[in-house]
Design a binder for these strands. Sequence first.
RNA 1: CGGGGCGUAGCGUAGCCCGGUUAUCGCGCCUGGUUUGGGACCAGGAGGUCGCAAGUUCGAAUCUUGCCGCCCCGACCA
Length: 492
Amino acid sequence: MSKELTSRAEDYSQWYNDLVIKSGLADHSAVRGCMVIKPYGFALWENMRDQLDKMFKDTGHVNAYFPLFVPKSLFEAEEKNAEGFAKECAIVTHYRLKADPDNKGKLIVDPEAKLEEELIIRPTSEAIIWNTYRGWIQSYRDLPILINQWANVVRWEMRTRLFLRTAEFLWQEGHTAHATKEEAIEETEKMLDVYADFVEQWMAVPVIKGIKTPNERFAGAEDTYCIEAMMQDGKALQAGTSHFLGQNFAKAFDVKFSDKNNKLDHVWATSWGVSTRLIGALIMAHSDDQGLIMPPKIAPVQVVIVPVYKGEESKVAIDAKANEMMCQLKALGIRVKYDNNDNSRPGWKFAEYELKGVPVRIAMGLRDIENNTVEVARRDTREKNVMGIDGLSEKIVQLLDDIQQYIYNKALAFQTAHISVADSWDDLVKILDDKGGFVSAHWDGTAETEEKIKEMAKATIRCIPLNNKKEEGACILTGKPSVQRVLFARAY
RNA sequence: CGGGGCGUAGCGUAGCCCGGUUAUCGCGCCUGGUUUGGGACCAGGAGGUCGCAAGUUCGAAUCUUGCCGCCCCGACCA
């Protein structure tokens, strides 16, 4: 493995790829477009998943699991949804292989084993879930249903990138059913808030909450709410979506309930999801040319202790002291690793844990044993300080908090600095070209204009921010009247 | 699917234009030793269907044809 990471300035995209692979988060696999999530990457995902799962449960949701396969007839039931996903579906057509008579040791698809009805590998689970809900819902007393599932889905993307866009990815998808429109909208907004809280407070990535334009809406939704994050190269990344589905799926799957007055009505629905793509957001929001920078709250390892030996006898003393410190840190709930592997030297370990983004590194050598100190280095600022061992654990807890706050503030400052206002077409293009980031500009509200802007400036409307201030203006492209500004950006 | 690049040891590569002993070098790996405060050093060692297939040739990593795969830029998208 080469020591050097491609720098962000040199080639941002290459930096990202190098970083994912060299830090041990994930690797390309033998399957086109599919990645192997390695233990370090999966540990990160588990921490994210566990926290989200807790937040879902705290808001009244329960987990369930639905099949990977969706019969084609169910898949096509909600027309817009089916149409939206049709061109990126993997399809199972057969259920058996057999020995190839012309080619010893090889297998062929058994033509006798063709399925009567093709099965779609879920790109999302609305169809199979709403088909199931029909049997669960008769009365308003059966509502609401607040279910989440942790699953994998497959979307046959033309071009893939580790974490950001893979053919198969892990995610969670919430699917809720409600008696009233108001309640469903409330749920949609509530889950958007959960996502925003998680991404900001746990991942330390500031986001902008908003609503998608009809063009950018989830296929089959009445409204798509989203959180948008800003990456260090000035490109936006959709970090999570929460959809108000209206009665579309209830109508497609004939899911009705009797209200208190025995009046029959279709059920109101929401769905919401975040995926392993969040890991991509995390990497691109915080990391630097030395490697990853993990937010302490979800870092697989929060503190690493590196011993600096000098001769055999020092090992005994340092190991003892380090183990004692590790116990104290663990007692405070800190995820700590003591790396006394003697195959690599301290300098190598320092670089390695910086690459992996471990928030705090403690180096402990003979010098420290004598002085009752350690060297504490923080990954975010790369500052090093010699600190006394007494009362260190509590200081480390505080330090982890400080780091979490610091990287959030840094990302927020970057985001704020990358929200620009444009009042002319030339300004819009110039800002997108030179600086990147979000550009707040007027838009006449038509899909045609949106499409044209996308073609001409390669920028999409990321969202109409929630609580957007109403403001009379002229569309940046057509000059037609506009009632508010929207956020444009080039995006992942 | 269009444009560009690339496939040689676990990783990164030289050799290819102009065919010819045993395929180069670095990292990593194994054994032993010395080391350890920012990616250690010495000695010895292992590791290769040169992406696959066919062709040309006395002889192919090198030339020809076909195929496969990957990466990057676009179109599609979370």
